[in-house]
Design a protein around this nucleic acid. Sequence first.
DNA 1: ACATGGCGTCCAGATGTGGA
DNA 2: TCCACATCTGGACGCCATGT
Length: 285
Amino acid sequence: MHCMSRNLDITLLRTFVAVADHGSMTAGGNALHLTQSAVSQQIARLEALSGVLFFREKRTLRLTPGGERLLGKARHLIILNDELWAEMTEGPLEGVIRLGAPYDLVGAWLPPVLKNFAAAHSQVDIRLICMSSPELLAATAAGTLDLALVEEPPGKSAGECLSVERLEWVGAKGGAAFLKRPLPVSMVAETCAFRTVVLQALRKKETTWKTLFESGSLDATQAMVRSDLAVSVLLASTIPGDLTILPFGENLPELPLFSVNLYHAKGQRSRVANELAQQIRDGLK
DNA sequence: ACATGGCGTCCAGATGTGGA
DNA sequence: TCCACATCTGGACGCCATGT
């Protein structure tokens, strides 16, 4: 059998994407510092390979279905090419990365991810900063964090959604704190992302409650729960084995789903930030 | 190993075409 | 008349086979 490898010309794909993005060969050419004629010829060469990519309509270009299909894959290929190029020409990752995370995710999710990242990129200095989700959002916007994991209600968010899971009531195994009224609730901090929805749920069910502890320490919060002095709320994946999930029902109101979203600092993303973000994504699969 | 010439590719510039 | 795309042409460059 005759088998022959063929190589795609990334230059042609880059030109194609630029034309598709700008809706015009002239504008696409300007973006790439090429003349219109060079762009026209490159598109013609690509179309000779792949079939017609643009409908020529009056003075505008419109992608054909084949062009639409190629566009997404072409973008991926260009990104991959640029990443590989950067890896080959810019050497190993180095520098400082400031990662923010809420208290509960630090213990549950991050250790294996950070361990793998540190092993692969020994010249990167990782700074881990723990705050509540609203504080993390503010720090990311202010540029004092490069990357942050933020817990938010699901829905429209500027961040990249990594997971959606249920918020659960937790208590001591065999405990009775959940029966007390007012309900003793222990939360990590006054700025805790869960606080608003928890209090809304309690009000809706007309459950009286009191806040027992908001010190900013997850260990202290969970110690209150282990001692059966209070109940608390946690994302399902972050619940320690020695605590028990308390079912919604007569004694406790139903809690909503929550998202874990990934935020980058505004502006240019560093290679280190992109790589750590990818490892966090991979770590959650 | 190096020089040379043929060939193909790519690009810019000039020009043609057609629509607004 | 202006603008955008297509086409043609010539120059620059790189690759490859061949000669020295």
